[in-house]
């Protein structure tokens, strides 16, 4: 159970940790979260609001928020920024056509005061698809190397196969400590 393991890693840190999953529609946020939680991923539909997963053990709690990425929902993202400890930004690495749009959304997140300084994990998702761009190529396109005001990391992954997800989250956990 991936989320429980993640919770256990947090045990020396804050008693409550809140992680936000954001990204364009169809980037794979819900699939990534379901996959991390060892849940089925064959029945996922576009998120029309939010999905929250809470894991608690003893006095420790992990809350992961996955907010829908459709254009009409994005203006509401800012309502969920408060109290966040870490940000996960999911990108469809196989959709070159929308990479610029994804980069624009990411840039506006980086300018948000409530998210200032928070560690950010970027999932270069859909690496199982032919034509998926490498993390380096995405980092270059999105100018990630220019980010100086927060720890960030780009992790290749496939939310579908689960590859890379745990590694990415482990990096994030180390930053929140």
């Amino acid at each position: 159970m991936g989320l429980l393991n993640i919770l256990r890693m947090f045990r020396k840190a804050d008693r409550q940790v809140r992680i936000l999953f954001l990204g364009l529609d169809n980037a794979g946020k819900t699939t990534a979260l379901q996959s991390l939680a060892d849940e089925q991923i064959d029945n996922i539909t576009p998120t029309q609001g939010f999905n929250v997963k809470t894991v608690r053990h003893a006095n420790y709690q992990l809350h992961v928020w996955d907010i829908g990425g459709q254009r009409t929902i994005r203006p509401y993202w800012r309502n969920y920024f408060g109290n966040t400890d870490a940000l996960v930004y999911v990108i469809d690495a196989a959709d070159e056509r929308r990479l610029e749009e994804s980069g624009l959304e990411l840039n506006s997140l980086l300018e948000e005061e409530k998210l200032a300084g928070l560690p950010m994990l970027v999932f270069a998702n859909k690496q199982d698809l032919a034509g998926a761009q490498t993390p380096d190529a995405i980092a270059t396109s999105l100018h990630l190397n220019a980010i100086r005001d927060r720890p960030w990391h780009i992790q290749p992954c496939s939310a579908k196969t689960g590859e890379g997800l745990q590694e990415g989250m482990e990096w994030l956990v180390r930053q929140v400590h």
């Binding site: 029309q48 609001g49 939010f50 999905n51 809470t54």
Partner: peptide, 20 residues
């Protein structure tokens, strides 16, 4: 107690809570 905070109009949302 759990605080969701803001809810988007016309939205469908889920909350899953795992209790050990």
């Amino acid at each position: 107690n759990f605080e969701f905070g803001f809810v988007i109009p016309g939205s469908t949302n889920t909350w899953e809570s795992v209790v050990l």
